[in-house]
Simulated scan of single mutants.
Amino acid sequence: MNAAEDLLGENPVMDGVKPVTMNESVETGDYALQGKKVLVVGLGVSGLEMIRFLCRQGALVSASDNRSAAELEDVLAELKELPLAELETGGHSSSLFRQQDLIVVSPGVPWSLEVLRQARTENIPVVGEIELASRFIREPLVGLTGTNGKTTTVTLLGEMFKAAGRRAFVGGNIGTPAVAMLQPDADWELGILELSSFQLEGVVHFRPRVAVVLNVTPDHQDRYRDEDAYLAAKMNISANQQRSDFLLLNVDDDRLNLQYRQLEERWRDGEEISRPLPFSCRAELELGGSFVGQRIR
């Protein structure tokens, strides 16, 4: 039995597990986008991919970016082929934001923007790209975050599943937006997503089948008030997981070691949280995994 078979349900412990709870809502139409006014904030790679997806869903899509039209020349050329309801550049107007049914924020856009705060106070849903994608993805997801090593690990995981003969989408913060997994001709068996703290700020119901946190060291101190806020953003990866899901934590990291011990106690007390599992490169563990002396256990 290999890891690919475990994740895709050929292991008895996986039988009967629904990979993403949001799929039930999609099927009942709760997240139908046809005719809905949706604003995409930020016109980077993720923003463009979200616009394409939303247009395919029949949404009335608008876009907003604080960069000037001159700075967005290449992006605007691509947007000419898409049926945008409205496009604003050079700043964000509250009037455009306040008329939306849904606002989707690109990863690099600060959630502290005043126009986003105002929208939330008026009960306009504001979500990130990962949240949007996860509402429509039906395949199981592996989500991986951490300060360092994310891209290397996600790439390695993708190659492992490929070698096992599995069709694994690899994306997220690694370069290909998660919403690209929803292209019309896609035929994936699972998704492996690299997730930044910025992306995890915008999740609401996102639920990966397996979540991994590699490490947490001080970073993005211009965005987070302190290290605890940064850690909280990272740990948001497991916020919606259930007892049948898994959360892998690097216990060589002191802060994650504490998280593991606290979560393990809560899981043993019967709380509806994911199964925390430790991994280490320093010591062989009775539970979880380790890589010591060039040996994987």
Rank of each mutant, 00 (worst) to 15 (best):
E271V: 04
S62N: 03
S46L: 08
D187K: 07
P278D: 03
S280H: 04
L54Q: 01
V213K: 00
R209L: 15
V142H: 00
F136M: 06
A63F: 03
R295P: 08
Q221N: 12
F279A: 09
L33D: 12
L156T: 11
F291E: 06
A3W: 03
F169G: 04
F97T: 08
K18P: 07
K36Q: 11
R223F: 05
E159S: 14
R117A: 14
T217F: 01
R120C: 13
V210P: 02
E201P: 07
G44E: 00
V105D: 02
H220D: 14
F97S: 08
L182T: 01
L157Y: 03
V203F: 05
S244A: 11
D65L: 03
L214I: 05
R135H: 10
V142W: 03
S290T: 09
V20L: 10
L277P: 14
V251R: 03
Q118S: 15
E139I: 10
A119T: 07
G191N: 05
L60F: 10
N240Q: 07
G270R: 04
V179N: 00
R261P: 04
P83A: 00
A59D: 03
L113D: 02
M50H: 01
L116S: 09
Q241M: 13
N2A: 10
L102D: 12
N250S: 12
L263H: 08
A32Q: 14
G288Q: 10
A69I: 08
N240H: 04
R297N: 15
P184F: 01
L277R: 10
D65E: 09
A85Q: 14
L102F: 06
V17N: 13
D15Y: 15
Y224G: 14
V13D: 14
K150L: 09
D222V: 09
V203Q: 01
G91F: 02
L54I: 05
E129F: 09
V109F: 06
I296A: 15
A168N: 00
L247G: 10
S95R: 06
D269P: 08
G58E: 08
L285A: 13
V75S: 07
L113S: 06
G44I: 05
T176S: 14
F97M: 14
N148Y: 02
G42A: 06
E88K: 08
S238C: 13
R56V: 07
L200A: 09
L156F: 13
H205F: 04
A70M: 11
L102I: 10
G171H: 01
V204K: 00
R117G: 14
A69W: 03
V203A: 01
V109Q: 00
N148D: 14
E271N: 11
R295C: 10
P110E: 08
V38Y: 02
E265Y: 00
G143I: 06
A233I: 01
V292R: 12
L102M: 13
T145W: 04
D226E: 08
R225W: 02
C281D: 02
L287H: 13
E49T: 14
E24L: 14
E86D: 15
N148P: 02
V216F: 00
E159N: 15
L256C: 08
E88G: 07
K162P: 06
N257Q: 09
R167N: 15
M22I: 04
Q183H: 12
